[in-house]
């Protein structure tokens, strides 16, 4: 070993030591902060976590769409957040305008269920259409071409949203029951329970499709090597369409849940939520499904705790905290929490 590489080795060791110390200190600091908050008000702590996690599962639904598409064609689909936005507008119109439901009740529940199916179909169809007509022809083009097309698609969808929903924010009556459960001092709104009851099975179904079904197998093969997948007899175009359909359906479901739990729609919602969901996907390791869910839950939780704990930075710092954590994480682990670099022998 040369002197040069010895010096390099020593620097590397020192750097790693420094990183580990800083990391440990940061973790201890966060634990301390959580600890004093918990001691001060356990109920507020649980309340904040609960709100955070219920936002997190919503982010997860959207984040999966980014990560699925990135995993299979290495495209950051900037239009995905706006697809979610169209899902919110579709749901509001479906329930309150087309079916005229503005109050809870048995019939309203039926309409809600019908809307879930309809909005998932809607999201899937639009996403498949976008891939078919805009991205597919650019599959062999330089990476920048589909990327800028996706940015363009995002504006087109926003424009549709602007015309459909108007330039301002619209508020709607929710048809979900408005009560809540109270355990000690922690209140759990019915809407939170319902959104978790819808989201969790969707996430499980999704992971089952990808890991256990024939279509899922085709997706994983296509993600790893398109030409090799073709040589196995896999219909690569159909597999990519299917992937967009899955992502679009989840974004549609997220649209309905958001619209019914927050009771609002706005043409620029896709930008805000899309950015957070995309960040979740990157934090978890883009292309990794479990990673996207983990990243989304973490970001939801971070926001919830930061906004809701008695001793904290408060809501105005919410985004700053999230993105600071993201930047730190990227510096130390550029592949994200669960992103792996496989050793591939040539």
């Amino acid at each position: 070993m040369s002197i040069l590489s010895k010096g390099y080795q020593a620097r590397q060791d020192r750097r790693r030591y420094l990183e580990r110390t800083l990391g440990t200190l940061a973790a201890l600091g966060i634990l301390y902060w959580l600890g004093i908050n918990f001691a001060k008000s356990p109920s507020q702590f649980f309340q904040a976590s609960l709100i955070g996690l219920s936002n997190g599962v919503l982010y997860a639904l959207i984040a999966l769409g980014y990560t699925l598409v990135y995993g299979i064609i290495e495209l950051i689909n900037f239009a995905h957040g706006d697809l979610f936005m169209l899902g919110t507008v579709f749901s509001a119109n479906f329930i309150s305008v087309w079916f005229g439901k503005t109050h809870t009740g048995i019939a309203a529940f039926g309409i809600f269920a019908a809307c879930l199916v309809a909005v998932m179909t809607f999201g899937a169809s639009i996403n498949v259409g976008i891939e078919r007509f805009a991205y597919r022809r650019l599959r062999r083009a330089p990476k920048l071409a589909p990327l800028i097309t996706a940015v363009g698609m995002s504006f087109i969808l926003q424009f549709v949203g602007l015309h459909w929903n108007g330039s301002g924010q619209k508020t709607w009556n929710s048809i979900l029951p408005s009560g809540q459960i109270k355990i000690d001092n922690v209140t759990i709104p019915y809407t939170t329970i319902i959104s978790v009851i819808i989201t969790v099975p969707l996430l499980i179904l999704m992971s089952w499709i990808v890991s256990r079904t024939r279509q899922g197998k085709a997706m994983r093969a296509t993600a790893q090597d398109q030409d090799a997948a073709r040589l196995m007899g896999i219909n690569v175009n159909r597999t990519i369409s299917f992937t967009f359909a899955l992502g679009g359906a989840l974004a549609g479901a997220a649209g309905l849940i958001f619209q019914q739990t927050r009771g609002l729609t706005s043409y620029n919602l896709g930008y805000q939520l899309g950015l957070i969901a995309f960040t979740s996907a990157v934090m978890g390791g883009i292309g990794n499904l479990q990673g996207a869910v983990l990243g989304a839950l973490l970001i939801g939780l971070i926001q919830g705790l930061n906004d809701g704990l008695p001793i904290g930075l408060g809501q105005q710092w919410s985004q700053t905290v999230v993105f600071s954590i993201l930047i730190l994480l990227m510096a130390f682990k550029p592949t994200g929490l669960l992103g792996k670099t496989v050793t591939e022998k040539v």
């Binding site: 994983r220 093969a221 790893q224 090597d225 030409d227 090799a228 073709r230 040589l231 196995m232 007899g233 896999i234 219909n235 690569v236 496989v342 591939e344």
Partner: peptide, 23 residues
């Protein structure tokens, strides 16, 4: 299309192996 040709009974082991590394 490639998948239609495979369906007819024509398979290839391509140059550079191209196995699925994460499987």
């Amino acid at each position: 299309e490639g998948h239609e040709i495979v369906a007819k009974g024509l398979c290839q082991s391509p140059e550079g192996r191209r196995i699925f590394p994460r499987m």
